[in-house]
């Protein structure tokens, strides 16, 4: 059953991302997602970018026509929520590296904040196309994480890929006991390989087409897994073992198409 919540606050984060905050006391954990129904439009899976307390949040990225359109809906709009669904990031690392690409950082932020509150060390390598698109760098800094940035156009931080920053950080032996990553799959694949090379356990949150979100309809099939119930967080070693990871996904009809 969905429940109706009103968007209390609409926070433009970057030119392409908007956060909606809404009151929803249903408990949720970092890594989990909800199905968000915009009445009269679509229902989309969205990872929670705020999981604590009674005010949750999702950060909507303008990807296609639908997400661009629904980004514009004003505060006060009532939306439907189902969930939270899926698994979570285990809050066990004491020295965590997060590697976020673009809006992927929204998925990593609540868990990173929770670990900081718990006294763990968190280093963030965050990437974006350009400075204005950098997401949640300040939020994570104020949580006490050390943040290193990379932009494709060199307008902020390292000029180049965030994976290059991650690779350098992972090069310090024993510095990290876990890596979390979320972003474009090609990026996540590189992070997973870099973590494997340094012997650091890594976990990635992946995105697939979703319809039921209940492990039934098979829309989010990824190898032998269903992202909605077995994921969205998977050990990097699991992801690297899947021929589809970083290469293909299923479209709404079930056809395999390039990621």
């Amino acid at each position: 059953m969905h429940r109706i919540v009103a968007i209390d606050r609409r926070v433009p984060e970057t030119p392409s991302t908007v956060t909606w905050r809404f009151r929803d006391p249903t408990p949720a954990a970092p890594g989990q997602f909800v199905m968000v129904w915009v009445p009269g439009d679509d229902e989309l899976p969205m990872s929670l970018s705020y999981t604590d307390g009674e005010t949750k949040g999702v950060t909507v990225k303008a990807m296609g026509a639908t997400s661009r359109r629904i980004q514009e809906i004003p505060p006060g709009t009532r939306i439907g929520i189902r969930g939270p669904y899926g698994n979570r990031f285990a809050l066990t690392p004491r020295r965590l590296l997060i590697v976020g690409g673009g809006s992927g950082t929204a998925v990593l932020a609540p868990g990173a904040e929770a670990l900081r509150r718990d006294g763990a060390e968190v280093v963030g390598a965050l990437g974006a196309t350009t400075a204005a698109e950098m997401l949640f760098a300040e939020r994570l800094r104020s949580a006490g994480a050390r943040i290193e940035l990379a932009t494709d156009d060199g307008s902020l931080g390292h000029a180049g890929y965030v994976t290059e920053v991650a690779d350098r950080l992972l090069g310090e032996p024993g510095r990290f006991d876990a890596v979390w990553t979320c972003g474009p799959e090609v990026m996540m694949r590189k992070v997973a390989l870099a973590a494997r090379a340094r012997g650091v356990p890594a976990f990635g949150s992946v995105e697939r087409q979703m319809k039921c979100a209940l492990g039934m309809c098979d829309a989010c099939a990824l190898g032998p897994y269903h992202v909605c119930v077995d994921g969205p967080v998977f050990p990097a070693e699991t992801l690297l073992g899947l021929s589809e990871f970083g290469r293909s996904k299923r479209d709404p009809s079930g056809r395999l198409v390039p990621v």
Binding site: M1, L44, L214, M216, G254, R255
Partner: peptide, 29 residues
């Protein structure tokens, strides 16, 4: 032929003991 099916919401779990769906026969053809 390939068919994407209806847009979401396509599934709504109902209480008690029911599952409502209109997928619209999505299939790759």
């Amino acid at each position: 032929v390939a068919r994407p099916g209806y847009p979401n919401p396509t599934v709504e779990p109902l209480d008690p003991g029911g599952m409502l769906n209109a997928m619209g026969l999505p299939n790759p053809g």
